[in-house]
Design a protein around this nucleic acid. Structure first.
Lengths: 239, 239
DNA sequence: CGTCAGGTTGATTAGGATCAACACAGGTGG
DNA sequence: CCACCTGTGTTGATCCTAATCAACCTGACG
C-alpha cells in the first residue's frame, strides 16, 4: 500500500520537495509554484495520459509508480521509462503527448497547468535549470537502458532491473552498507518484460534461476531479498 | 568528402546557425558565444572524448558524424547516440564524461570552454531554453531507439536506421516529395551493428535481403538508393 | 465454488549470434 | 608492375538464447 498523501499539504512537508522539479526553488519561487499546483490521484492500472492526447498539465510524481510506454503498429509494447516519486511527467512546450503513461500502482501527482508552468519556466531560472538537469539525468538513464536493451542477456537484464529498484527504493542516504537489501517490485512480470525487452515467461524463468543460484530469495510475488548486493551487481554486466 | 569549413568564419554564415544550441540567440547573445568559441577538427576514427575523461569543453558538431558509445565490462559495445551536424556534445554541469565519443568521419566541432559556457547558460535564457529543448528532443529520440532495440526485428532495425539517415541527411525543408531518395551511409556495417544492437553479419545479411526484395538498391559500400521511401517506412515497424 | 489475473514450468521453434571462408579495394613496398 | 597485406563486406553452416505455444498452479474475490 502506498503512503497516504493529503492533497492539502503544503510544499514544505512534501516528501519529494528536495528531489523534484522544485528542488532548488527558494521560498518565493515555491510560493509561485504552490499557487498553480493541484493534486490528482490515479488508481493502479489507470491511464494517466494517452499518446496523441492534448496534455493539459505537467506533473511531479509524488507517490506510487507509473510507466511511460510506446506501442509499435502491430501492438508490441516497450516501456521507455519508469516513473518513481520525484520524477517529472510531461514536456513543457509540447501539447501532444508522445507516449502512454500508465499508473501501475495507486499514484498521486502534483500537477501544474501546462501553460502556466511554461510561463514559470521562462522567468524562474531555478526551475528552468532544474528542468534541464532532470532532462539530462533522464537522458543518461535512457542511454544506460539502451545498453541493457541492445547488449545484455536476459539474466543481466533482470539483475540490472533489481539493482535499479534497489537504488531508487532504499532510503537515499541510508547507504545500507555492505550486506543485503529487501525490495518490493512495483511491476508485474509482464510489466517488467515490457521494460526489459523480454517476454514474461523469460522474466519468470530468470527469476527462478537467480533464486536457484542463491543470488536472490523471493517473498511472495513481489518481494525480493538480495542477500548480497555486490553479488547481484556482478550479475548485471556493466563495468 | 565533408564540406570544408574554415575556422575563421563567423556565426552568421555558419551552416548550423539555425539548428544548433545557438539557434535562438539574438545578435547580442551570439557575440558573447562567438567570444568563447574555437574550432577543432578530428580525423575519421579518432576519439573525441573518453568515458572518465575530464571534459574541458562542450561543443556543437558542425560537420561530419560522430558516435556516443558505451562498453560493458566484457567489451560488448552499444552506440547510444549518433551525432550529426547541429547536435550538441557534452553536458554542462558535469566534469567527467560518461561516454566515449568517436569521430566516424572527419569532424569539425565548434567548442566552448565548459566553465565559460556554463556561466553563459546561467545568464542567457535563450541558450538555457534551447539547451532544454535539445535535451528533451534527444530524450525523445533515445526513447524511440529503446523501442527499436527492445522490440524490433533485424529487418525493421535496418529500415528504421536508413530512414533516420534519410531524414537527417536530405536537405531539411526540401521535402523530396513522393518518390525516392539517395543517401550516403556515414557508418560502416560494424558501426551500424553497434548502434542497432546486432552483429555486423546480421546487418550485412539484412542489407542483402532488402536489396533482393527491391526495397533498396546499393551503390558501392556506402551508397543506398531508396526507390520508394513510403515502402521503406512500411518495413520500419512503427505506426 | 467458480472465475480470473498473475505466475511458473515444460516442449518446441526461430531469429540472430557465432564461427568460418572468401571477395574485393586500396595501399605499400620490393 | 606485381605481390602482399589490411580493412571492409558478403555469404554459408551451425549453435544457442529467448520467443512461442501450452499446460498448470495459486490466491483473491464475487
Amino acid at each position: 500500500m502506498e503512503t497516504l498523501f493529503l492533497a492539502s499539504e503544503n510544499c514544505s512537508s512534501c516528501p519529494i520537495r528536495h528531489r523534484a522539479v522544485c528542488a532548488s526553488c527558494d521560498a518565493d519561487e515555491l510560493t509561485r509554484l504552490e499557487a498553480i499546483k493541484y493534486y490528482r490521484s490515479f488508481e493502479a492500472g489507470q491511464p494517466i495520459m494517452w499518446s496523441g492526447d492534448r496534455m493539459e498539465f505537467v506533473a511531479s510524481l509524488v507517490s506510487g509508480t507509473a510507466t511511460i510506454e510506446r506501442l509499435t503498429e502491430d501492438g508490441r509494447k516497450q516501456t521507455v521509462g519508469l516513473l518513481l516519486p520525484s520524477d517529472f511527467i510531461g514536456r513543457p512546450g509540447r501539447d501532444q503527448a508522445l507516449y502512454d503513461v500508465t499508473a501501475v500502482t495507486d499514484v498521486t501527482l502534483c500537477c501544474f497547468r501546462r501553460n502556466e508552468f511554461e510561463k514559470l519556466v521562462e522567468d524562474t531560472p531555478h526551475i528552468a535549470q532544474r528542468m534541464l538537469e532532470m532532462a539530462l539525468d533522464e537522458l543518461d538513464a535512457a542511454r544506460d537502458w539502451m545498453v541493457l536493451l541492445g547488449r545484455k542477456t536476459a539474466r543481466e537484464k533482470i539483475a540490472s532491473f533489481l539493482l535499479l529498484i534497489e537504488r531508487r527504493t532504499v532510503a537515499p542516504g541510508v547507504a545500507a552498507m555492505g550486506a543485503g537489501s529487501r525490495i518490493a517490485l512495483p511491476l508485474t512480470r509482464e510489466a517488467m518484460s515490457d521494460y526489459l525487452g523480454l517476454t514474461l515467461e523469460t522474466v519468470s524463468r530468470q527469476f527462478s534461476k537467480l533464486k536457484a543460484d542463491g543470488v536472490i530469495r523471493l517473498e511472495g510475488k513481489r518481494g525480493v531479498i538480495i542477500p548480497d548486493v555486490a553479488a547481484l551487481k556482478a550479475e548485471a554486466g556493466d563495468g
